[in-house]
Computed example of a mutant assay.
Amino acid sequence: MDLRLAIFDVDGTLVDSQHLIVAAMQAACEGAGCAAPARQALLSGVGLSLPQLVAGLFPDQGAPVHRAIVEGYKHHYARLRQEGGEANVTPLYPGALEALNALHAEDATLLGVATGKSRRGLDFILESFDLRRHFVTRQVADDHPSKPHPSMILTALAETGVAPERAVMIGDTSFDMEMARAAGVRAIGVSWGYHDARRLERAGAEAVVDTFDALRNMLWSGN
């Protein structure tokens, strides 16, 4: 049996985390004594590793302030998550669970994750929604260069033994699409996340879907 691999981004693709991201960054900036970035500027950078995101948002600040914001963000993200409950603060997008369950049930399909989240953050999501068993390869920011470097996807391919032409990356940002193209795998964008369809297409998305049902219908077309 020729296996195929669907690799999912998390924030903006599987879970709606924008409220938590914005609140954690505002608290981190307050603690570091600097103004919080505009909401759209912050969300547009979601998907990058946290240090790279912070450096891009605060180019006029030095490394000590960057470190303070990064550590403050991690602290407040974890605090807010625990206070609010992951299922309430970062809910799965409509149709996500049903799509993952259906794909997981396909004998020839393996599922993976490639996310800018930390290992701890991803583990919390997977445990909260009972998704750990779905994903055979889980790539996080702790272990790789920031997207769009292809390291996450290349490692997922190596761990699963799936050929690049049998793999697809599903994400909501141009960083996901660029990462997929750099790794030599297909790229499908979703319209409900942080980058619009035109930006995803310019970054290399072969298609941008509006629902998880549409994603499932076209995921393995031609494979």
Rank of each mutant, 00 (worst) to 15 (best):
V46G: 10
E71T: 02
A99D: 12
A114I: 05
P59R: 09
V70R: 02
E71A: 06
A63R: 11
K117L: 04
A63P: 02
P64G: 10
P51Y: 00
F124D: 11
A63N: 05
P145Y: 09
L50G: 01
L92Y: 11
R81P: 00
D143R: 12
G72F: 03
V54M: 07
P145G: 10
G84M: 08
P51R: 10
G84Y: 05
L92D: 07
Q82D: 15
G95W: 08
A55C: 09
A96V: 08
L111E: 12
D142A: 08
E98D: 15
A78W: 07
S146L: 04
E106I: 01
V113M: 09
P94E: 06
N101D: 13
N101Q: 15
E127N: 14
D130T: 08
E106Y: 01
P59M: 01
R120Q: 14
L110P: 00
Q52D: 10
L103W: 15
T115Q: 08
G45N: 13
D143E: 14
G56I: 05
R67M: 04
G116K: 00
P150V: 13
D123Y: 04
D142R: 08
A55G: 10
G56H: 07
G95S: 04
E86A: 13
L103K: 06
S128P: 08
R132M: 06
N88L: 12
A141G: 07
V65S: 11
F135G: 07
A87V: 09
R132E: 13
P59D: 02
T115Y: 05
G95F: 09
H75K: 15
F135L: 04
I69M: 13
V136Y: 05
L97R: 04
A78T: 09
D123H: 14
S146A: 13
Q82C: 11
V140Y: 00
E98K: 07
A105D: 06
L154E: 12
G84T: 04
A108F: 05
S49M: 04
A99G: 11
P150M: 14
L100A: 13
R133A: 15
F58G: 07
A156R: 14
Q82P: 00
L53I: 00
L53R: 02
I69S: 09
L97K: 01
L110I: 01
E127M: 10
F135S: 07
G62V: 01
P145S: 13
L57S: 08
D60Q: 15
R81V: 00
G45C: 11
P91L: 07
T90A: 15
L126Q: 06
F129W: 14
